[in-house]
Each structure stands twice: as structure tokens, then as C-alpha cells.
């Protein structure tokens, strides 16, 4: 594994982090953001950068199960922790997470750039709130900006996924 910042090797650290269930070890520059670590070092490019100042939500990942902005974390901070990205949501190469299924079925994505952050946010939300109202879904994704859909289809998809997940459990 390589660091992106070669100019400040003095500020390197070894880290070990479980990403989508697999332990990843490597040496990183201490100023490397978690988002860049995931995208560049681990080649998990599903975590998108839309603003890099913590507003758009595209880079949302799950840190120890909680939805957080990966652009507002340093890679060194997740040493010893567990991270789930959009690539880790589907149970297999042929089966999707119920939220992913529902997003496809309800046209919950157009360009797909905000989608990973929407999904990770909603995975945590539905764990906390398995039977939400439409209004609760809207509040849950109020920190995720989508310029394509107008959100209605995302809300519909989430309610549908929640119903399917309740039936399945």
C-alpha cells in the first residue's frame, strides 16, 4: 500500500482497519483523509467526494456502524476500527441489499453520484428506525444532497426497502 503524499514521509503512520469485513493494513500520511484512503489506497472508489467540507454527504460511510462523513476523518483516526463502504453493502455479487434493490426499482438514482452516501446513511437509519414515516426518511437524508432526483423516489425506495426488511426479519 502506498501513501499519496510523498513529501512528508516523516508524518507517516501504520494503521490497520477492517474495511467491509477485511483487515487492511498500511502506511499512510497522517493528513490523508479517510475518503482518500478508501478511494486511492484501497481502490474503493464507490465513496464519492462531492464537496470535501462535510455538507453534501456523498462520502458517507459507516464507522463502527455509524454513518459519518469520510471527508471529515483522517485515515489515522480509524486505526483499529471498522469501516463499511457502499461496496460492502450487498451480501454477494448476485444479491443486493434491500435498499439497493429498492433504489433500482423506484428510480432512486439517476447519475448515481450521491447514491453511495444515501445508501450508507439509510442503512444505519433503518437499523435505528425500521418502520419510518416518509417525513422521518426525509430528515434522515437531509444531510445528503441529490441534484438529480428531487428526492421523492429515494423516499419511496426507502419506505419500500424498510417494508421488505421488516417482512424479511
Amino acid at each position: 500500500m502506498t501513501s499519496v503524499a510523498v513529501g512528508d514521509e516523516t508524518a507517516m503512520r501504520r494503521i490497520g482497519v477492517t474495511v467491509n469485513g477485511t483487515l487492511q493494513a498500511g502506511e499512510v500520511s497522517v493528513r490523508l483523509t479517510l475518503a482518500d484512503f478508501l478511494r486511492q489506497d484501497l481502490k474503493l472508489t464507490g465513496t464519492h467526494l462531492g464537496c470535501e467540507h462535510g455538507v453534501c454527504g456523498a462520502c458517507t460511510i459507516l464507522l463502527d456502524g455509524r454513518a459519518v462523513r469520510a471527508c471529515l476523518l483522517l485515515a489515522v483516526q480509524v486505526d483499529g476500527h471498522s469501516v463499511t463502504t457502499v461496496e460492502g453493502l450487498a451480501p454477494s455479487a448476485t444479491v443486493l441489499h434491500p435498499l439497493q434493490e429498492a433504489f433500482c426499482a423506484h428510480h432512486g438514482l439517476q447519475c448515481g453520484f450521491c447514491t453511495p452516501g444515501m445508501l450508507t446513511t439509510l442503512v444505519e437509519f433503518l437499523k435505528d428506525c425500521p418502520d419510518p414515516s416518509a417525513e422521518e426518511v426525509r430528515v434522515a437524508i437531509s444531510g445528503n444532497i441529490c441534484r438529480c432526483t428531487g428526492y421523492d423516489s429515494i423516499v419511496e425506495a426507502t419506505l419500500s426497502a424498510a417494508a421488505n426488511m421488516r417482512d424479511g426479519s
Partner: peptide
């Protein structure tokens, strides 16, 4: 803020 910012 939002869910993600309150989490952190």
C-alpha cells in the same frame, strides 16, 4: 446538523 454530523 444531520445524522452523520451528530454521529461524530
Amino acid at each position: 446538523g444531520h445524522r452523520q454530523t451528530r454521529n461524530r
